[in-house]
Write a protein that binds this DNA or RNA. Sequence first.
RNA 1: GUGGCCGUAGCUCAGUGGUAGAGCAGGAGGUUGUGACCCUCCCGUCCCGGAUUCGAUUUCCGGCGGUCACCCCA
Length: 435
Amino acid sequence: METSPARGMKDYLPIEAALRDWMLGVILETYTSRGFQRIETPALENLDRLIGSGGGENEKLIFKVLKRGVKLEIAGADENTLADLGLRFDLTVPLARYWAHNQPKLPPVFRAIQIGPVWRAERPQRGRYRQFMQCDIDIVGEPSVLAEMELITVSVEAAARLGVRNPVLRFNDRRFLDSVLDWAGVPSEAGPAVLIALDKLDKIGPQGVLAEVARLELGEKASGNLARFLEESSASEELPMGFFAEIGLDEAVVADMVAIASLSACATLGGTKLVFDPTVIRGMGYYTGPIYELGVAELGFSIGGGGRYDEMLGRFGRPAPACGFSLGFERISLYLHEQGAHGAVGAPQVHLRISSPADYPIALAMADRAVARGVRASIEGTSKKLRAVIRHLLEEREGAVGAPGAWIAVVELSGADLKIHDVTGDCPELSWLRD
RNA sequence: GUGGCCGUAGCUCAGUGGUAGAGCAGGAGGUUGUGACCCUCCCGUCCCGGAUUCGAUUUCCGGCGGUCACCCCA
C-alpha cells in the first residue's frame, strides 16, 4: 500500500509541525500588534467566483470539486456541469468576496489577516507544492500609497522576526508598465506577451528578451523603444526619474514610487534592501498599481509578494480600493530549515520516567510543579531504553528555534527515589520537583 | 501541462539478467562503569503494473512519486 501523501502535498513530523507553529505565532503576533485582525474564509468557493476573478494562469490550476448528493451523471457531461465548487488558489479572491458579504460589519479601513492553505494543480518542485500556506495581510478602503507603505513595513518586520536575513524587496507599478507599453507603441493586445518576456530578464538577459519581443513583430519603433527601456531597466535603489519624465509618467505614480522608496529609512525594515525593479511583473491579472516581491539570495524564488487590486472588489458588487501582501509560509519554512532551523520550540523540559502505574500520581504532581514554572513536562514508562529516549530528546533540541539551547532533564522515578539525568549539562537544581 | 534526470533497509548510498549489501539509526538480548564501549541476533513485496526472458531489483514500455529546466508562482 502506497502511503506517501498525494502528489505535491506533505506530511509534517512533530519536529516540523512545531517549527511551523512557532512561525505562525510570530507572524500572527507581528500582524496583530500592528492592528490587523484575523479572519477566516472557507477552502472551497463557488467555481464561478474563482473563474474570471483575474487570477490569471492560476485559474487553469484550480482543483475542481464534483457535485455531490444525487447520483452524478458522468457520461457525456463536461467538467463545468459536473463541478460547481473549487479549492481556492489564493486568499485574495476569497477576501474580495468576504468584503462584499460582510462590509457593513467591518471597519471603514479594514486590515485583514488571512492565514490558510491554498491549492494549485501545478507540477510540484522544490519550494512549490500543490497545497501550501499563505499568510496574507490586506488593507481594504485605503486608496493612497499609505496602505502599501504599511503592508510592506509590517510584512518585512514579520519576515525579519522569523529570522529571514538580508531580504530584498523589489517593487514596481502596473501603471508604470502600462505607461511604458503605451509610450513604446505596443498595441494593447501584445501587452501581456511583452510583459511576460520582460519578466524573464534576470534569466535570459536583455538579448533574450529582445529576441522574444522581435518574435511578436511589433515593428521597428516599438522594438527600438523597448530596447531603450531595457537599458533603463536595471534594478536599483535610485528611481530613474529622467526616464519617468521621458515617457510622461503620471505625477501621482511617481509620487507613490517615491513614497515606497522612502521606506528604506524606516527602522523596522532593518537590513532589508528596497529596490525599484522594472522587471517585477507578477502574474495576477487583477493588479492595478504598486506591485512588489520579497526575496532572499539563497532561494531562486520569492518568499512573498503582493500588490494593489483596486478593481477586483467591484466585481463582487462593492467597489473599494484594496491591496495585499502575502508571505509564502512554505518557502520561508524551507529557507529556515536550510539555515539550520531543524527543530521545535525549545522550552526547558523535564521528562519523567516511571516503572509502575503506582508512581503516576506522584509523577503527575511533579509535572504540575514543572509546568507551573514554565517547564515542559512529560511522563512516560520505561519500555524504551534510556539511551534512545535521551538521544531523541537531544535530536529534537538540535537547531531549535524560539528558545534554543534550553536545558533538558530526564528524571527516573521509582517510589521515593529520584535519579536525575542532566541531559544537556546545564540543568538547574530540581529540588522543587519534590515539594 | 512539455522535456531531462532519478526512485534499493528509517536515513545516506553501493550493487547485480539467477529474488541484495555497507555505514548510521531502530528492535530483541548479552556484557557493563546501566546516557560509554563491546558482542550476538532481527529489520527490505530492490515504487507499482505490463512486456521481453527459462529467470528482472537489474532491459523495454506505461503509471505513480521526486527533482531540474520550461511555464508560472508563495
